[in-house]
């Protein structure tokens, strides 16, 4: 049933968010640490279990796939509610700091990707 997939997805997000909040509290900071990432790992783990009695039916899968496909529309809505005026009118300091942070980060991606691949390959060989 479709709702099984949606419910499983909801369970993963709630469990991940809870874990992220608890990690934040343990570290003494007012932020969720990796909640969504933990939820993603949880979903991957649960759906890759191939127990004999437990398998996600095609209908249940479609409950997850629907929300996956809704990702881009949701991001379009997210873009439409950004504080763009705030970003543009925040003055030169904010503008320069934001732009430079992005440019420097972009510039380092090729180098780090190279290192990530190398590390991954080394691990694979061992």
């Amino acid at each position: 049933m479709v709702i099984y997939g949606v419910a499983l997805l909801a369970f993963c997000l709630l469990a991940g968010s809870l874990a992220g909040d608890l990690i934040g509290q343990l570290l003494g900071i007012q932020a969720n640490v990796g909640g969504v990432g933990i939820a993603m790992l949880l979903l991957l783990f649960v759906t890759s279990l191939r127990a004999e009695r437990w398998q996600l039916s095609a209908a249940s899968q479609s409950g997850i796939l629907f929300w996956s496909a809704m990702y881009i529309p949701i991001v379009v809505a997210m873009a439409a509610k950004q504080n763009v005026v705030g970003a543009i009118e925040s003055g030169w300091l904010a503008l320069v700091a934001g732009v430079l942070a992005v440019v420097v980060s972009f510039a380092l991606i090729p180098l780090f990707t190279h290192l990530a691949r190398r590390a991954g390959q080394l691990e694979g060989e061992q």
């Binding site: 968010s17 969504v36 991957l44 929300w67 991954g120």
Partner: peptide, 22 residues
Amino acid sequence: DFAIVATAFGADTRALREAGWA
């Protein structure tokens, strides 16, 4: 966040494992 988590469904876990530390 709900939609982001859903995109993980069917992701390549090997790449996640290999590039995890990086």
